[in-house]
Simulated assay, not measured.
Amino acid sequence: MSRVRVHNLSVSLDGFATGEGQSMEAPFGHAGGRLHEWLFPTRTFRAMQGEPGGETGADDAFAARHEAGIGAEIMGRNKFGPQRGPWTDHEWKGWWGPNPPFHTPVFVLTHYPRPSLEMEGGTTFHFVNASPHEALRLAREAAGGLDIRIGGGPTTVRRFLEADLIDHLHVVLVPIVLGRGVRLWDGLEGLEKRFHVESVTTPSGVTHLTFTRP
Score class of each variant (00 low, 15 high):
Gly122Ser: 10
Gly144Val: 06
Gly145Tyr: 11
Ala139Glu: 03
Phe125Trp: 06
Gly153Lys: 00
Gly121Ala: 11
Asp164Met: 03
Ala143Leu: 04
His168Leu: 14
Ile150Glu: 00
Asn129Gln: 14
His126Asp: 10
Leu169Ser: 02
Leu165Ile: 07
Val172Lys: 00
Gly144Ser: 13
Thr156Trp: 00
Ile176Glu: 12
Ala143Glu: 02
Ala163Val: 08
Ile150Thr: 05
Gly153Ser: 14
Phe160Gly: 04
Arg149Ser: 15
Thr155Gly: 10
Arg140Ile: 13
Gly153Trp: 01
Arg137Val: 15
Ile150Ser: 02
Glu134Val: 11
Glu120Gln: 15
Val171Tyr: 05
Ala143Gly: 10
Ile148Ala: 02
Ala130Ile: 12
Pro175Phe: 11
Asp147Met: 11
Arg159Ser: 15
Val177Gly: 06
Gly151Asn: 09
Ile150Trp: 00
Glu120His: 13
Glu162Asp: 07
Leu161Tyr: 01
Arg149Pro: 01
Val177Pro: 03
Arg140Tyr: 01
Arg140Val: 14
Leu138Met: 15
Thr124Gln: 07
Phe160Trp: 10
Val174Phe: 08
Glu134Met: 10
Phe127Asn: 05
Leu136Thr: 02
Gly122Asn: 07
Gly152Leu: 01
Ile150Phe: 03
Leu136Cys: 05
Thr156Val: 15
Val177Trp: 12
Ser131Asp: 07
Phe127Lys: 07
Gly145Glu: 11
Asp164Asn: 11
Phe160Tyr: 14
Val128Leu: 15
Glu162Ser: 09
Ile150Val: 15
Ala130Cys: 13
Gly121Arg: 09
Met119Ser: 07
Pro175Tyr: 09
Val171Ile: 15
Val174Asp: 04
Gly144Thr: 05
Val172Leu: 05
Ile166His: 03
Ala130Phe: 05
Gly152Gln: 02
Leu169Met: 09
Arg137Gln: 15
Leu173Arg: 11
Arg158Asn: 14
Leu161Gly: 02
Thr124Arg: 12
Gly145Thr: 05
Ser131His: 07
Gly144Phe: 03
Pro132Phe: 03
Asn129Cys: 14
His126Met: 13
Leu138Thr: 11
Thr124Phe: 04
Val128Ser: 06
Arg149Leu: 12
Val128Ile: 13
Ile150Leu: 14
Phe125Met: 11
Val157Phe: 01
Asp147Arg: 06
Val128Gln: 13
Thr123Asp: 10
Glu141Phe: 04
Val171Lys: 01
Val174Met: 06
Gly121Lys: 09
Arg158Leu: 05
Ala139Lys: 03
Phe127Thr: 10
Arg149Tyr: 07
Asp167Pro: 04
Ile148Lys: 01
Gly153Thr: 01
Asp167Tyr: 09
Asp147Ser: 12
Thr123Ser: 15
Ile150Asn: 01
Ile176Thr: 11
Gly144Met: 08
Glu134Phe: 01
Ile166Ser: 00
Gly152His: 01
His133Thr: 14
Ile166Arg: 02
Ile148Gly: 00
Ile176Asp: 05
Glu162Arg: 11
Leu173Cys: 09
Ala143Trp: 00
Ala130Gln: 13
Glu134Thr: 10
His170Pro: 02
His133Arg: 14
Thr155Phe: 07
Ala139Val: 08
Phe160Cys: 07
Val157Asn: 04
Ile176Phe: 04
